[in-house]
Design a binder for these strands. Structure first.
Lengths: 158, 158
DNA sequence: GAAGATTGAGTTATCAATCTTA
DNA sequence: TAAGATTGATAACTCAATCTTC
């Protein structure tokens, strides 16, 4: 009975100190960063962060249009959230809804000129808050480690 | 007129490509990670992530008690959210409310034995999800860069 | 039956106003 | 006046059920 075991079953191994520190920081970031970024942005820009995300996703899509499912994927929002959000934004003429040509189940959101203007007007405010709350506190030398690591993390999320 | 200008006023300088990649990943993480961690955790553990955070904060506090403002700080939740959450948890006997001895404005939350049990029972589930959604996707060699960088980021949040 | 989308119902989170004590 | 906390109103968000089309 001298059979060798692996150190410990992976899912139950407690966090190492460095993992614990990372986890605490990440937990605080996911809770507090959206609040910090949103705080004042809506007042300055007339858009919530989610609305900004929708406009930005449409802006960079072919024909400035996306099906709702694709929009949900691009913004990481849930489909039902996107459906309601696009409704509200269409009422404010930031985008318009349409039916999908080749698949009649589909709904498409399309960027309007007013939406383009709103996005352009909001951009400097958005940028300023990202710098203020994120990049002003990061060492430029760390970016080349952080970017791929966080990208892998994000890619693994459902 | 050959006067030299700084490259550009900092708050308006657009994101560098590496910054853009980092920002996109971070944006996805703050939106999708809480969902991913919460998904199933409540069913497995009988606690929401916020409730888990409250219990964990109380557990590591002197006398297993914290004033609500301190609890809000420790969990990164808003004070009003904490007030309601502690109410709901007290109804389930996970913690109890008390008045502060030396400052009669203050409310204190105190961990109960049932709260301690719930925390202990939830811990392995919590740990498993953190490993599954975070550390399984990070290179251990990056941790020593990531941990301090994210800690600085978190520390700068309001 | 499965995919895309919508909707009703319920939960979670925030804001502003308020109350009490310092 | 300010700090700690609570609460009513409201917005954001999710879940499950549903409808339509594939």
């Amino acid at each position: 009975m001298t059979e060798q075991r692996p150190p410990e079953p992976a899912p139950h191994r407690p966090l190492e100190p460095v993992e614990e520190r990372l986890w605490r920081a990440l937990a605080e970031i996911v809770i507090a960063l959206p609040r910090a970024l949103d705080d004042g942005f809506e007042a300055d820009a007339g858009l919530s962060l989610s609305e900004y995300g929708v406009l930005a996703a449409l802006r960079s899509a072919p024909d400035h249009s996306l099906r709702l499912t694709a929009l949900a994927g691009a913004t990481a929002l849930s489909l039902s959230r996107v459906s309601r959000l696009v409704d509200a934004m269409a009422r404010r003429d930031l985008c318009e809804r349409g039916r999908c040509a080749d698949d009649r189940r589909g709904s498409v959101a399309h960027l309007t000129p007013a939406g383009t203007s709103a996005l352009r007007a909001a951009y400097p405010h958005h940028l300023a808050r990202i710098r203020e709350h994120v990049f002003d506190h990061l060492d430029p030398a760390d970016l080349s480690t952080l970017a791929p690591a966080l990208t892998r993390l994000a890619a693994a999320l459902p």
